[in-house]
Design a protein around this nucleic acid. Sequence first.
DNA 1: ACCCAGGGTCATA
DNA 2: TATGACCATGGG
Length: 219
Amino acid sequence: MTLRQVYAALYRTYGPQHWWPGETPFEVMVGAVLTQNTAWSNVEKAIVNLKTHDALDPAVITHTPARTLAAWLKPSGYFNIKARRLKNFCAWYLAAGGLAALQRLDTATLRRELLRVNGVGPETADDILLYAFQRPVFVIDAYTRRLFSRLQLIDGEESYEVLRHYCEKGLGRATGKVALFNEYHALIVAHAKSVCRKTPLCAACCLRRRCPLGHEILR
DNA sequence: ACCCAGGGTCATA
DNA sequence: TATGACCATGGG
């Protein structure tokens, strides 16, 4: 089984996912920070709160007291830490000169800069690169490790960077890499949600010849 | 009542 | 470099 075959099976099963949910690049970036180890349904509530207070804006977030911001972020969990991380990110964003200035940076530079922000790790940075800046970066998350590991494509203990390069090389020379990587990550999450997460069978589901829940993908 | 979620940082050894 | 503690809400 190849990375392309896994993709084809996922796409056949779940169809296009239309990621990232978010109306602007900045909203995508905020969502990427807020969704760290957190269910998206909780993040949505926090983003609604920000919009309600006209606070989905880097300058507003910067000038909002941490305690106020944390109160708006409460539904997304880790609200004190995330308030600080959002402020760190917005300070970086404004200091860099905003969206237009950031868009002019090449991908490697932009990635390094994102990783300088305290609160932005490799996955959050890659979410932002792919879904806010349309850069051809493959996002590695816990689901990706689990899935590819269970399919015996990888060991599962490789470093983030090793896995990212493996996936990017493995999907090689495609024109449309951005669209492919976009859909691939979203499909893995869709698969995790619909099959693997809500049942004790999740650990084996993807590898069974016939899924006990009736799913027929990834054989 | 327990488990998990679209991670990351920091202290310790 | 590698492991563990910590952050915290909400749904299954």
